[in-house]
């Protein structure tokens, strides 16, 4: 589904990614771990098309198409979803309005009929229950005045409604208390499917207790320096990142 080859990228003047190779197949969950400044969020951002990141070498294909040739909205319609580390507050834009507009754009792309307000409400009921979203969060402006946990739940709620093929979760666990983490993880686990792939970007192993990955990759200095199964995350939890950085890169 996603093939990243020798990806180099700059954010501003700084070279952040120095040759990433990553293959993600449908049905798989990959965790990308690494210390601060290793390039995790840049990797998530460049895949979603965040402005300010320049690809200097390498490629990424999504379902066979050149990902970098697509505008952010084209990637979203084609099935790439980024759950933001810091969801943006947008006062004056109604949360439900945005979600309905987003869903209808995706449906249009898929050749499905657009939903009216009634059908939309019916459709999102289940996901609201799953993420324990209060009705008031729908009518409020996007993320404005939401608590940290509410913002992250809102991201996963959007994920659940939009049903992308590839979900990239950027530090979705950061700042969540244990209750909120369980709700968010429950939402993500409910989205697991043989047709869908997920990339979890996280600093800590804690999230992986609740969302068990198939593969774990360690990012350091803008490259994947170690890959393994879920047990690698536990090892990192025990030993920290220091030992990885001193080992020769394993590709």
């Amino acid at each position: 589904m996603l093939e990243v080859r020798d990806l180099h990228a700059k954010a501003g003047d700084r070279q952040i990614l120095n040759g990433i190779d990553l293959t993600v197949n449908a049905g798989e969950i990959h965790a990308i771990m690494g210390p601060n400044g290793s390039g995790k969020s840049t990797l998530a951002g460049v895949l979603a098309g965040r402005n300010g990141i320049e690809v200097t070498a390498g490629s990424a294909t999504f379902q066979g198409n050149d990902l970098f040739a697509l505008e952010p909205e084209e990637r979203a319609r084609a099935g790439v979803f980024l759950a933001f580390q810091y969801p943006v507050e947008i006062p004056g834009v109604n949360n439900a309005y945005l979600l309905k507009a987003a869903l209808n754009e995706v449906r249009k792309y898929r050749g499905e009929p657009e939903l009216d307000a009634m059908d939309f409400m019916t459709l999102i009921r289940e996901q609201m229950k799953l993420l324990e979203m209060d009705d008031s969060l729908l009518t409020r402006p996007v993320n404005a005045g939401f608590s940290g946990g509410e913002k992250k739940r809102n991201e996963i709620f959007q994920l659940a409604v939009l049903e992308p093929s590839l979900a990239i979760l950027d530090e979705t666990d950061s700042g969540l208390d244990i209750d909120a983490l369980k709700i968010v993880a429950g939402g993500v686990n409910a989205m697991r499917s043989p047709d869908r792939a997920m990339v979890l970007v996280t600093h800590y192993q804690r999230l992986l207790n609740y969302i068990v990955p198939d593969f774990v990759h360690v990012l350091s200095g803008g490259r994947i320096v170690k890959s393994g199964g879920k047990e690698l995350a536990l090892e990192l939890e025990d030993r920290g990142y220091g030992w990885i950085e001193t080992e020769p890169a394993a590709v």
Partner: peptide, 13 residues
């Protein structure tokens, strides 16, 4: 950032 957020939710520029 707001523009990117909305575009990442499939809305055109």
């Amino acid at each position: 950032d707001s523009l990117f957020y909305l575009r990442s939710r499939a809305l055109s520029h």
